[in-house]
Nucleic acid binder design. Structure first.
Length: 106
DNA sequence: TAGATGACTAATA
DNA sequence: CTATTAGCCATCT
C-alpha cells in the first residue's frame, strides 16, 4: 500500500466533529517527516467524496486556504455543521477538536 | 539530472 | 499567540 493510500485511510477515519493535522496523520502512518507529502496526497487527487479533506488542517488549526474541493466557504460550513466552532481569526480550537491517535494499526 | 515548489513542522525569539 | 529560519521530501519543470 502506498503512502497516499495510507493517508486516505487515516483521513477517512477522522471522526465527525474532530480534525487532524498533517503532522498528526504522518505520525499515525509512521513517517512523521512526510507531513508535506500528506498535504500533497490531499492536493493531488483525493478520492472525491470519500476523503473528508476539510477535516485536515495545519498545526495552527487553520484551513488549507487555496483550493479545497469547491471553496473555502463550503469547507468552513461543513466543519460548522459538524459542530466545530471558528474563532474570529477563522481558526478552530485544536485543544478541543484535535483528534487523538487511537490504537492505530499502522 | 538538477533546481524549484509546496494543502508542513519544529525550534527560536 | 505571531514571525522568522531551517529542515523535510515527493512531484514538477
Amino acid at each position: 500500500m502506498g503512502f497516499f493510500e495510507k493517508v486516505y485511510e487515516v483521513v477517512k477515519r477522522i471522526p465527525k466533529g474532530k480534525v487532524a493535522t498533517y503532522g498528526q496523520i504522518a505520525r499515525i502512518i509512521g513517517e512523521p517527516r512526510k507531513a508535506k507529502i500528506v498535504g500533497w496526497a490531499l492536493h493531488s487527487n483525493p478520492y472525491k467524496g470519500i476523503v473528508p479533506c476539510h477535516r485536515v488542517v495545519n498545526r495552527n488549526g487553520e484551513l488549507s486556504g487555496g483550493f479545497a474541493f469547491g471553496g473555502m466557504e463550503i469547507q468552513r460550513k461543513l466543519l460548522e455543521d459538524e459542530g466545530i466552532i471558528f474563532d474570529e481569526s477563522g481558526r478552530i480550537n485544536l485543544r478541543k477538536y484535535l483528534r487523538k491517535e487511537n490504537g492505530s494499526e499502522y
